[in-house]
Simulated scan of single mutants.
Amino acid sequence: MPKLEQFEIKKYWQIFSGLKPVDQKVSHDQVLPILYNSKQDSSVLNKIWFLADIDDDDNLDFEEFVICMRLIFDMVNKNIDTVPDELPDWLVPGSKVKLVKERKQTKAKENESLPPQKEPPKVDWYISPEDMTSYNKIVDTCTRANDGTMTFPSLSLSIKNKFFNIGSSDMDKVWKLVNPRSLNSIDKDPALYFVHILRQRNDVGSLIPAEVPKNLEVVFNKQPIQYDLKSEQAEVKRTTVPVEQPKPASVVTSSTITSSHNPLSNDLKIDTNNMTIDKARLIKEQLQGLLKYKQDKYIYGKDIATSGSNYNLQSFTDDLDNIEQQVNELAGYLSHKKDELNSLNNEINNTSS
């Protein structure tokens, strides 16, 4: 860290004089615009002010003001990574040496009388019903995208209005934790955990976790359903069902899954004899996406029917019931396949032993 130069002291004097000091001192309110413009976290600025205000009168004379400005500029210019716990000797003015020593002695006595400090608590991942209600109110105040997701700026604005003991760096860390895919926006589930972690950080100083529990990885890594037919999620092979051999709607067997009511999948026939669990899971996701599509179209169609247009809502209702049944039956099929796989693994393990 470079030491103070004369040109630097002159620059600080110009700033100090421009603040119109009273009795050769400036108050915290007078210096506040400079502190705010530095864009440092409030915790950093509070620590700098404490170090600079050597006589603890909540005002700065010019020598103390120089200390304050130098530490701020060193943080802004990244000459230092963190604010030191004690002032370096070269930054202590001669007239303040005695006061600095007395402050150190007082602090040492206070530390001796204090009980041993406990480590900051870890984040409790459980969200109680009461907390969930509170978090929902916060999340509901956020501006949402067309798909219902929330961006970092919208969530941060709501958080700042509720929690005052957290800085922007805390929010950045938690955002990366709940958004490992670095998406522009996230849906409601990770948003609730975003609020949950920051609330504990604000209230009891909990440590921000470095990783998430295994059972929440799926929640934070969840990929939004894409309705673009060119996306990877749409890569499902289809074969045409002969017209002369139609099968009843919502019939699900071990070899085929068909839908006769869905206009987008009249010709959908999926061979499940050689289907792997991954393929079954992919098809389940596709059917769930199609179910949501039909639900949205049903609501849209209902609006049109209300306005007087000729629209067949009953067919949409039948489609929804049909697709939902197929999703449920496919889920059972997937569970059955998993059981078969586990049984096969057990036989292999017994044979090898």
Rank of each mutant, 00 (worst) to 15 (best):
residue 2 P to E: 08
residue 4 L to A: 04
residue 6 Q to Y: 09
residue 8 E to A: 03
residue 11 K to C: 03
residue 25 K to W: 14
residue 36 Y to E: 12
residue 37 N to R: 11
residue 43 S to M: 07
residue 54 I to T: 00
residue 57 D to R: 09
residue 57 D to L: 09
residue 70 R to E: 11
residue 71 L to P: 00
residue 77 N to S: 07
residue 78 K to G: 03
residue 81 D to S: 10
residue 89 D to K: 12
residue 94 G to K: 09
residue 94 G to Q: 10
residue 105 Q to D: 13
residue 114 L to F: 14
residue 116 P to D: 07
residue 121 P to M: 08
residue 122 K to D: 12
residue 127 I to V: 15
residue 128 S to A: 14
residue 129 P to C: 10
residue 130 E to L: 13
residue 133 T to F: 10
residue 146 N to W: 12
residue 153 P to L: 01
residue 154 S to I: 07
residue 155 L to M: 15
residue 168 S to A: 05
residue 172 D to M: 15
residue 187 D to H: 15
residue 195 V to S: 02
residue 195 V to E: 02
residue 197 I to Y: 01
residue 201 R to K: 13
residue 205 G to N: 08
residue 206 S to D: 06
residue 217 E to Q: 15
residue 217 E to C: 15
residue 219 V to F: 10
residue 224 P to S: 11
residue 226 Q to C: 11
residue 227 Y to N: 12
residue 242 P to Y: 11
residue 242 P to W: 11
residue 250 S to W: 10
residue 255 S to M: 07
residue 262 N to T: 04
residue 266 N to R: 13
residue 267 D to C: 12
residue 273 N to M: 10
residue 273 N to C: 09
residue 295 Q to D: 13
residue 300 Y to W: 09
residue 302 K to P: 07
residue 303 D to V: 14
residue 305 A to E: 08
residue 320 L to D: 05
residue 320 L to Y: 04
residue 322 N to F: 00
residue 325 Q to L: 07
residue 326 Q to F: 01
residue 335 S to E: 09
residue 353 S to K: 12
